[in-house]
Design a protein around this nucleic acid. Structure first.
Lengths: 111, 111
DNA sequence: TCCGATACATCGAATATCTATGTATATCCG
DNA sequence: CGGATATACATAGATATTCGATGTATCGGA
């Protein structure tokens, strides 16, 4: 799939996933992969920097947690600011879809 | 509007617009701006390099034409290869929309 | 006559994502 | 018991796209 189109959807989807419940990085990647039947295959090199950036912007908040197995996980939850950003980004996404689809439809001949 | 989301849609929309008829750069920008009620506002600095890149990839073919006013325009038309790319990119776009919307819907609670 | 619209172009900057690589532990299988 | 795989995080460098600024030139209207 044309990876260029994916740009910008990463932060939107992370925020959306975290609106369900607090999750850690690896879990986020697995969830989006499952939810979209593999349409999204985020690499760690994309995901973790994105999480750090969202945390720096205070849209999400992370907290270390020890599992019983001694492995550390960093759980992220959505902040109030993040929830607002999610609303905004969702609206922008909807508008983008409408705009693009309008152009494609006009090109294909008005229904 | 969050400009990050726009990435990758530029070439898709250019190809789509040119599938209607041959157009020149300025006209492409004006058309997409009108068709989307201003949702897309491409700068010349984005559009012209994109056109050059598509031409280099032989997805579109350009030809200089003189207007009666002495101004030169470069008309671009879709090549066969470009038409194939358009089909491909349109499918990728549809899949992206489906995938993103699926995640958003699951987050908002299954209808 | 001057300004804005038309019409093209290029360069550098900003930004996001990918690839590759690294660390460490737990678990499964032979 | 040893090795491969999955879990779980992280960073650094490369790549690519788009934006902003700037430049050239012509034409029409105020």
């Amino acid at each position: 799939m044309d990876t260029e189109l994916l740009k910008g959807t990463l932060s939107l989807l992370i925020l959306s996933l975290l609106s369900r419940k607090a999750m850690y990085g690896y879990q986020i990647a697995a969830t989006v992969h499952a939810d979209t039947d593999g349409a999204f295959q985020w690499r760690e090199g994309s995901l973790y920097p994105a999480l750090h950036k969202l945390e720096q912007a205070k849209l999400i908040a992370g907290e270390w947690e020890d599992t019983d197995a001694g492995r550390k996980r960093r759980y992220y939850r959505l902040t109030a600011k993040g929830r607002a950003a999610l609303t905004e980004k969702t609206a922008a996404w909807a508008e983008l879809c409408r705009a693009v689809n309008r152009v494609l439809e006009v090109s294909n001949g008005p229904a």
